[in-house]
């Protein structure tokens, strides 16, 4: 198996040496994990009561509520963000400077400002100017922050997708007499969306993770439920590790979906795959 071009298929001596390195690494890892285990055990973190407390029905009900609140905020935000992204990208692609330049500034602004800063601002702003209940207020603030940020990111993704559509397509569309709006709507957008799908799903993972910031403005999502559970079972570390497992499961499922879509599209030819990669280059890493 040549997993990489960086090394040759190892011979018997090298293979033994690699096995030795592998064993050393494994032993080191196990030693560290064992040390952590002993420390936690000595600290009383791993008492059976903790796990008994955590397996109670109301704990799982709280986790269920948290997952629902997290998914709700993420779903609303991603739908609104896709809409906003399309709008901003259309503006950004416009030939009219008075439309293009403000759209560009809006995109640049919301891409550069931390999501948490926006959430805190909206939370305070809404509390002052509207008469929502606190929970609604927090949800609106979370959704507003996530929508503006992801909308700005998706606008750039959409723009890259439109630019990745081969020039010949656009020229052919103009040649048969379509107007500018029609070319964008009928020819460029349907193809761009195909290139964008994997990028949109990666952005869903980012959105799902960022809903955890709602914790700071008291939105009752998974992490905040985790905090209440931690207080209830008197154990922070184990509870948060459990919450982490749930997040990892949700996001891994989404990532699998993204790579499945990407594989499905790459079957249709190299150009589509290249276009997908070109689109993903504009995604912020992190």
């Amino acid at each position: 198996m040549a997993a990489s071009v960086l090394f040759d298929e190892p011979g018997p001596v090298t293979r033994r040496r690699h096995q030795l390195y592998g064993v050393v690494l494994a032993v080191l890892l196990i030693a560290v994990l064992w040390w952590v285990y002993l420390k936690l055990k000595a600290g009383g973190e791993l008492e059976p009561e903790v796990f008994e407390d955590l397996s109670q029905e109301n704990v799982w009900r709280a986790i269920g509520e948290g997952v629902v609140a997290t998914l709700k905020a993420a779903a609303i935000s991603i739908v609104l963000a896709v809409g906003l992204g399309f709008l901003l990208a259309t503006g950004r692609l416009s030939e009219h400077a008075p439309v293009r330049i403000p759209c560009r500034w809006v995109i640049e602004f919301f891409r550069a400002v931390p999501v948490l800063l926006m959430m805190i601002f909206f939370f305070g702003f809404l509390a002052q100017n509207f008469d929502f209940e606190t929970e609604t207020n927090a949800l609106v603030a979370v959704v507003a922050g996530l929508t503006l940020y992801n909308g700005a990111v998706l606008a750039e993704v959409f723009r890259a997708g439109v630019n990745a559509v081969p020039r010949g397509q656009v020229e052919a569309a103009y040649a048969i007499g379509l107007r500018k709006g029609q070319v964008l709507r009928i020819v460029q957008t349907p193809q761009a969306v195909r290139y964008m799908l994997p990028a949109i799903i990666s952005q869903c993972v980012v959105t799902l993770k960022d809903t955890a910031l709602g914790f700071i403005i008291t939105y009752g999502e998974l992490l905040r439920q985790g905090k209440s559970i931690a207080e209830f079972v008197h154990n922070n570390l184990i509870t948060f590790l459990l919450i982490a497992v749930i997040y990892i499961a949700m996001n891994s499922a989404l990532s699998l979906l993204a790579s499945w879509l990407e594989r499905r599209m790459s079957v249709r030819g190299h150009s589509a795959r290249d276009a997908v990669l070109q689109v993903e280059e504009v995604l912020p890493v992190g």
């Binding site: 990489s4 690699h18 809903t211 910031l213 700071i216 992490l223 985790g226 948060f240 919450i243 996001n251």
Partner: peptide, 23 residues
């Protein structure tokens, strides 16, 4: 070229990337 090393690297990236930073 060390399989254990590759597994450790992959596991780290998969676990950490899918967990919210605040958590």
């Amino acid at each position: 070229p060390i399989p254990v090393g590759r597994a450790i690297g992959t596991a780290y990236v998969q676990l950490v990337r899918n967990t919210p930073l605040l958590l």
